[in-house]
């Protein structure tokens, strides 16, 4: 067991895997434990970058880059935009009624997730349902599966995003024609003066 670990640590892939694993878990722990918003946000973003490293190790360059663009570039940036409304330099006070409940619930969820993902590995070796084709790029392979086998979920997801987008525009766009910065009454006065002339 220990020899296997040492041997895998010696290879480039193994070393990179363990390095990324330790760093990712460490950074995400900081995200959960830290009381400072800035630390939590920075470590979450850094962890997202490191997760893309796993995709690169597995040879899934395209998915790795998508992880970078989507999670680091878009989703985390939106989180951080929400953080603008807080005082980032001050520690926050969490309102936990009971630490034990949080610990048990969190621990149970983590345990269930580990069991869920570990079960297929333990029972039989994982088989690739859609192995990569030789000489075809990563993006093409993903696209082929996405537009044949998973076309319906893909389209449904697109529709849901469209619905969410329209809802967002409806919610935010009610007062779109009014300027928040300019004093509208000043404009009215100008209009009245024009009318009088």
């Amino acid at each position: 067991m220990l020899e296997n670990f040492a041997a895998s640590l010696m290879t480039i892939e193994g070393f990179a895997f363990y390095l990324f694993s330790v760093l990712t878990i460490g950074l995400f722990s900081v995200t959960v434990m830290s009381k400072n918003i800035l630390y939590a946000m920075t470590s979450l973003a850094a962890g997202m970058v490191l997760i893309s490293g796993f995709f690169f190790i597995l040879g899934a360059d395209f998915l790795g880059v998508v992880q970078l663009v989507v999670y680091v570039g878009a989703i985390m940036a939106l989180y951080s935009f929400a953080m603008m409304f807080f005082d980032a330099t001050r520690d926050i006070k969490e309102k936990n009624t009971s630490n034990a409940v949080v610990f048990v619930l969190g621990g149970m969820t983590a345990l269930v997730l580990v069991l869920m993902f570990a079960a297929p590995i333990y029972s039989e070796s994982i088989q690739a349902l859609y192995p990569m084709h030789e000489g075809v790029g990563n993006a093409q392979d993903v696209g082929m599966v996405l537009f044949t086998k998973y076309l319906v979920p893909f389209e449904v997801a697109a529709l849901m995003l469209l619905v969410a987008m329209i809802a967002g525009i409806m919610l935010a766009g009610k007062k779109m024609d009014d300027s928040l910065t300019e004093d509208m009454s000043a404009d009215d006065e100008i209009m009245i003066e024009k009318d009088e002339k």
């Binding site: 800035l38 920075t42 973003a45 970058v49 360059d61 395209f62 880059v65 998508v66 970078l68 663009v69 680091v72 570039g73 878009a74 940036a77 951080s80 790029g137 990563n138 993006a139």
Partner: peptide, 22 residues
């Protein structure tokens, strides 16, 4: 020389926004 070099560069430049932001 990545297969997805163009996307990688755009993604990395996107990650660059954390510098000014933080």
């Amino acid at each position: 020389d990545l297969n997805v070099g163009l996307l990688f560069v755009l993604g990395m430049m996107a990650a660059g926004l954390y510098g000014p932001l933080l």
